[in-house]
Simulated scan of single mutants.
Amino acid sequence: MINQMTINGVKAVITYDPDIELFRGEFVGLNGGADFYAADVAGLKREGEISLKVFLEACQEDGVEPFKTFSGKFNVRIPPKLHSDIVSAAMAHGKSLNQWVAEVLDEAVHTRAA
């Protein structure tokens, strides 16, 4: 199971590492790695704040932009039948393929993250 947590406005994916019996947080959308470990939620928040602060300070010192930029474009490889079904669904909703896919993905991300 993968869960998310937001620390100081930055999302992190939280997983459990059974080898060390700790939860691991890893920030997403950064131009480098920033992870943190703790045994509980309070510890994750505390360690996450420290990890993020150290990462951002290092970026500032090095003159590096800490956050990735995204173009808004990505390619997805899917089976031809699914492609056909998606085009049909988009047309049935009176939308372009891009509009329909963007709405479905937005709904999926925000429904699961809630």
Score class of each variant (00 low, 15 high):
Ile2Leu: 05
Gln4Val: 06
Gln4His: 11
Thr6Val: 15
Ile7Gln: 15
Ile7Cys: 14
Ala12Phe: 01
Val13Tyr: 09
Ile14Thr: 07
Thr15Phe: 03
Asp17Trp: 02
Asp19Ile: 00
Glu21Thr: 07
Arg24Gly: 04
Gly25Gln: 09
Gly29Ser: 11
Gly29Ile: 12
Gly29Asn: 14
Gly29Met: 06
Leu30Arg: 13
Ala34Pro: 12
Asp35His: 14
Asp35Cys: 11
Phe36Cys: 05
Phe36Ala: 06
Ala38Thr: 05
Ala38Trp: 01
Ala39Trp: 00
Asp40Ile: 00
Asp40Met: 02
Ala42Phe: 05
Ala42Asp: 09
Ala42Val: 02
Ala42Thr: 03
Gly43Thr: 00
Arg46Leu: 10
Glu47Cys: 10
Gly48Pro: 14
Glu49Gly: 15
Ser51Gly: 14
Leu52Ala: 01
Lys53Ala: 10
Lys53Arg: 07
Lys53Leu: 03
Val54Ser: 07
Val54Ala: 10
Phe55Gly: 02
Leu56Arg: 06
Leu56Gly: 04
Glu57Pro: 03
Glu57Ile: 06
Cys59Leu: 02
Gln60Asp: 10
Glu61Lys: 09
Asp62Trp: 01
Gly63Pro: 05
Glu65Ser: 08
Pro66His: 02
Phe67Trp: 00
Phe67Glu: 03
Lys68Gln: 12
Phe70Leu: 14
Gly72Met: 05
Gly72Trp: 04
Phe74Asp: 10
Arg77Pro: 09
Arg77Tyr: 08
Ile78Val: 15
Ile78Trp: 09
Ile78Cys: 10
Pro80Tyr: 04
Lys81Met: 04
Lys81Gln: 08
Leu82Met: 08
His83Arg: 05
His83Tyr: 06
His83Val: 00
Ser84Leu: 06
Ser84Met: 06
Asp85Met: 08
Ile86Glu: 01
Ile86Ser: 01
Ala90Leu: 12
Met91Tyr: 08
Met91His: 13
Met91Ser: 14
Ala92Gln: 15
Ala92Ser: 14
His93Val: 05
Lys95Asp: 03
Lys95Tyr: 02
Lys95Trp: 00
Leu97Cys: 04
Gln99Trp: 02
Trp100Ala: 03
Glu103Asn: 02
Glu103Leu: 04
Val104Phe: 05
Leu105Cys: 01
Glu107His: 13
Glu107Gln: 14
Glu107Leu: 11
Ala108Asp: 11
His110Thr: 15
Ala114Met: 12
